[in-house]
């Protein structure tokens, strides 16, 4: 079967799936504006990585790595990546649970899961704790573009770090 002049084979489909999941997850992590969607994107990227790991041990002519007793001469797929994926899945569950717990605490404290709102509140909190004036955020800079007027920016040490 060919599509756009490209022959569709099993390995192409599997690799496209694994890479696609990783890329979708990475794009979701950097693009999403909602904290819960970031966690979901992380889970998707992880699924892609696990699929890629399992694929790296695949063999065309082999069976699952379980001895049935009768014939042990049949070739088997690599058991080492499968054991590693087992580890990775369990650790992934732990990471996701921790992330969800942290997100719940963020929601309780700030009342929102929107990333830009959280960033603003965080920066205000940090500046308030440090006792410095809050500078304008990246999304809404103080004063006019391209340069704020000199008297509009409070010149305090530490605030010009951005």
């Amino acid at each position: 079967m060919t599509l756009f002049g490209l022959e569709i084979t099993l390995d192409l489909i599997l690799y496209t799936g694994a890479f696609g999941l990783i890329v979708i997850g990475a794009a979701g992590i950097v693009l999403a504006h909602h904290l819960f969607r970031v966690i979901l994107a992380l889970a998707i990227a992880e699924a892609g990585a696990n699929l890629l790991l399992v694929l790296s041990g695949y063999r065309w002519d082999a069976i699952a790595p379980i001895l049935s007793g009768s014939e042990s001469a049949a070739p088997m797929v690599d058991p080492v990546p499968q054991a590693m994926v087992l580890t990775a899945i369990v650790i992934g569950v732990g990471v996701q649970a921790l992330a969800v717990g942290l997100a719940m605490q963020v929601k309780k404290t700030y009342g929102t899961l929107d990333m830009s709102a959280i960033r603003q509140r965080l920066e205000a909190d940090i500046a308030g704790t440090a006792g410095i004036a809050t500078t304008g955020s990246q999304d809404a800079p103080l004063g006019e573009r391209p340069l704020p007027p000199a008297d509009a920016v409070p010149v305090t040490p530490g605030s010009s770090a951005r």
């Binding site: 694929l55 041990g57 695949y58």
Partner: peptide
Amino acid sequence: DFGNAPMLVGQAIQ
């Protein structure tokens, strides 16, 4: 090389 994993460790373990 899809489908022909070298399996250096896997072969020994098996």
